[in-house]
Design a binder for these strands. Sequence first.
DNA 1: GCATCGGATTTTTTT
DNA 2: AATCCGATGC
Length: 726
Amino acid sequence: MYRLSELNIQQQQAVTAGLGPVLVMAGPGSGKTRVLTQRIAHLIDTLAVSPYNILAVTFTNKAAREMETRVVNMLGDQARGLSLGTFHATCARILRREAEHLPLNANFVIFDADDQVCLVKRVLADLDLDEKKFRAPGILGSISRAKNELLVPEDYPLQTYRDEVVKRVYMRYQEMLTANNAVDFDDLLLWVAWLLEGKAAVRDKYARRFEHVLVDEFQDTNMAQYVLLKHLASFHGNIFVVGDTDQSIYRWRGADYRNVLRFEKDFPATQLILLEQNYRSTQAILDAAMAVIDQNPQRTRKELVTERGAGAKVIYYEAYDERVEASFIIEEIAKRVRQKVAKPGDFAIMYRTNAQSRVLEEAFLQAGLPYKLVGAQRFYGRREIKDVVAYLRLVHNPQDEISLARVINVPPRKIGDKTWQSLLTHAHQSGISPADVLLHLGNDGADHRQAFSGRAARTLAGFGRLLSEWRGLASGMPPLKLLDRILEDVDYSSYINDGTDEGQERWENVLELRRLATEFSEQPLESFLERVALVSDQDTIEATASVPTLLTLHAAKGLEFPVVFIAGLDEGTLPHSRSFEEPEEMMEECRLLYVGMTRAKDLLYLVYPLHRNTFGYSEPTIPSRFLEEIPPDILEDRTVGRAGYSSGRSRGSLPAPDRWPNRAAAHARILEQRYPPGSRVVHPVWGEGLVLNSKIEDDDEVVDIFFEDIGLKRVAASLAKLELKA
DNA sequence: GCATCGGATTTTTTT
DNA sequence: AATCCGATGC
């Protein structure tokens, strides 16, 4: 059951706001998820709106799941029928239902970033364009931007020769998607916006159904999303959006925080509600965050207040380089865990670019401390996962040439490039898809056989037979069973698990995908594929982490942690060098830091490395401009060899080298061998192992240990908590 | 058809 | 430094 009395006045106002458009400006930690979920409960329970007539959209599955859980906790079965999901998943559902109005059938697959690049490369080759001159990711960026602005190829504006090229590629790319019975991420939104705009009957159907439309993170919507929301809410006009322009960090994805201003203009009777009370952070953290965001011009100043008290000062630390930065962070975590003032799961380490995680990971590994890295890409981008998913996609939608190309010779079955090319040529000449040719050959159809050499025809027919069998099984089978059948038929395990450590790891990833498939035993293959295509990085975060979390600042949005480290606060990293040209982009970098800082509940660390390794060379850095605006008296400078906060953060000048501890001096010096070869040791994470080798290096003992299950590992004795076994 | 080598290229952020 | 790509050789 839900209780209004637990909300503050503004939150209550938002939850119980009357009909019509409502805009809730919600600062960080102001309880916006709470407002959204209570609003839904209020609509259903108090106003007796049927859940069937309510649509709530978020940006990540995690946010959607969290809202769903909370609503179900309040209402139980009463909430059944509610439409709650991400923009992309919601659109996918609508498109499958309305496929008859589209040049697609309901089995369409969703192409991910890699597939898109593959497809564009093919288009470039088709059009005889130089792939070096016109890079696929760059072209895709332009296409994506156009799609987010609802620009179809025909309307692509031409100002330069490059535009001309992009337009031609865009056109052909779109044709190829259709031929593959596929859509990309942007299409999910674009097609729905197109349907709602162009097909009055479809628009009416949904606009009448959704009496109430609720939107989370509204500042991150792009034009396509804005337009489709407008259409969805066009009949009843009850649109309730929650957002914070200060947390707009997806400009590069087409998001436009000015949609918030547009909203007020398009819906003149909008009720505006401000949530400024912060329930998350200490005042010290909020003051520092406000100092950062306030330097953003053209913005209505907002006061963030908390009742949590002043709290500890924000800690500032200058590290010699990224490695010292990492060991400082780990030492701090270890210290606080030892002191029992925090649990490992309380910590998050945030950074601007994924590449920065590497040094941090290495430091964790060396210290023998477990951690969790956020990033769906890390898992779903893996070769073995893409292979297996491609098989499933192909079975579901044989027109998917990208998946076919991926698996036709994986594991190797003697179908090389030559055979593949002649398959493609023959298919196009016959006006059918390559997979159809395969299926024909597999079913002993004679009509296509003469197009290939005897050997090629036999191998192709063999694969066609397999594909045809799988297709026959697919409809009546849970995704897991089909997956197992494919793995067995192609003997994928012996292909990927080749006896090396890497092979072992790859096979374990496949098993992890298998585990995920078990959750879809009651659902069709389509649902499983959609889930795999639309996972977000955030979705990989466990609700209750028991170890420190490493994540990008972007992935951190919407989350909170007791202790937050923000690493790499140097010019070029944060703000990122790619943002120097555009003032708008520089402002977004500023907001990005603000988002990160406001994730912290109790303690915030800002870390600046004086040197950074780029392309193998260590170079001196300049401290982030955003640090300058934080008043020194609200920071605690923990830089070694410096008392208190010094304003002399020398821009560009090199520090005296002897003032900075090197790695070896940062921890206790070890001068004597303690783990001789042959001794058995216990490692906190990897368990028991045998010491193979050990040497003293840089006042530390470097130990090579063989672990039964893990293999050979090299650790630093000063960091890894090794225990000698008698 | 596959492995190996050398050279270019790399760093935003992600549904 | 590490990875990816293409060309070359087997």
